[in-house]
Design a protein around this nucleic acid. Structure first.
Lengths: 190, 190
DNA sequence: TATACCATGTAATAAGTTACATGATTTG
DNA sequence: CAAATCATGTAACTTATTACATGGTATA
């Protein structure tokens, strides 16, 4: 269900073709809610058939067309309604913590590798999140720019603020994971 | 796939019936890898059919039996082999951060509620994790006690250490989430 | 004219969720 | 003897993953 609202939220920035959605998804909302292209295209069609999106064929080259989707009034209403529903927190399912909880079954070298890879994984994530955050803050992020261009000027700061907050939260979590792995290496002495 | 190793790891503490596994699961490894009973029973059977577990019928009351599972040598080997495989990190899919990233579509009261519920959710989690951690540290946790009773005395500290680390990691994350939500309430002024 | 990129999927599978279902045993 | 708890699932569904599939268009 969340995918639908991620797509809806993305498309409020501007109308886009399915292909543009897949690209824009990866560089924005996909950081908080990943989905492969093979899930996006069918979902867009379902959303169109349910009236949340309007589809328009636009010419592409001499004898082809592509489909551009626009959020309908119903779509925006659905997005606003979703905002008032409680967030449903996923149950805990964390492969890294599961692994660490049973590291007694690994030798020291393996334990070290697991923890170093954990830190490395979150350092990579952190770098990506930090880059996103920077482009949100200076408003150079392409999707954000498009969104701001269509938004009321009075809302710009709030729009930037919430997006920055989302990425700051991810970064805080990344930092917690890096610190934890570092400390674990120390505690276990591996 | 991870469920299988969570069950295997749990059953190395001591042989258990399916029912005992479901109970023990909830109060231990289920904190890092949740699974409903309806997933556990079939998985135990599959593992038995693949030789990772040995099943033994033990009498229960005058005319019934229950099935007790024991980790086989193959099972323990599978667990050790799994330890050396890279952790596969799930893709990002975070309903709370998704919600916050588009809080511009919510009014102030809704935004406040989302963030307060976020903090409340992680405070609850934190309390549970802290309780687990305490019972790990003082070795009163029932599953841990059973595990230590069957383990080499020289390994006790390491066993306790990794389990404590796992919960400490969860708590660090809980704290990061609580701090983030608190700060977000402040930044948005809602 | 080759290569990159645009465009849009389908099929098969795996994993996990929710709801339902049933009966035996122990205990107060 | 009623209630709690022990014991073990099945069925239907939803969601997501992986791999494959196809062809048009723009550009160097």
């Amino acid at each position: 269900m969340a995918l639908r609202f991620a797509l809806l939220a993305l498309l409020t920035a501007q109308p886009m073709t399915g292909y543009d959605v897949t690209k824009a998804f990866r560089s924005s909302v996909g950081h908080v809610w990943h989905a492969p292209d093979s899930q996006i295209y069918p979902e867009l069609r379902r959303m169109e058939s349910e009236g949340l999106l309007a589809a328009r064929a636009i010419p592409w080259g001499p004898r082809s067309t592509k489909t551009e989707y626009t959020v309908t009034a119903d779509g925006e209403a659905a997005l606003r309604a979703w905002m008032t529903t409680p967030v449903d927190y996923p149950v805990d399912r964390d492969p890294a913590h599961l692994r660490v909880a049973y590291l007694e079954f690994a030798d020291d070298a393996t334990a070290r590798r697991v923890l170093e890879e954990h830190a490395a994984h979150y350092r990579t994530q952190r770098a990506q999140h930090a880059q996103q955050l920077a482009s949100i803050r200076d408003r150079s992020h392409p999707i954000l720019s498009a969104r701001l261009a269509r938004a009321d000027l009075a809302d710009h700061d709030r729009i930037v603020a919430v997006k920055a907050l989302a990425y700051e939260g991810m970064i805080a979590r990344d930092d917690a994971e890096i610190a934890w792995a570092t400390r674990a290496l120390d505690v276990l002495g591996v």
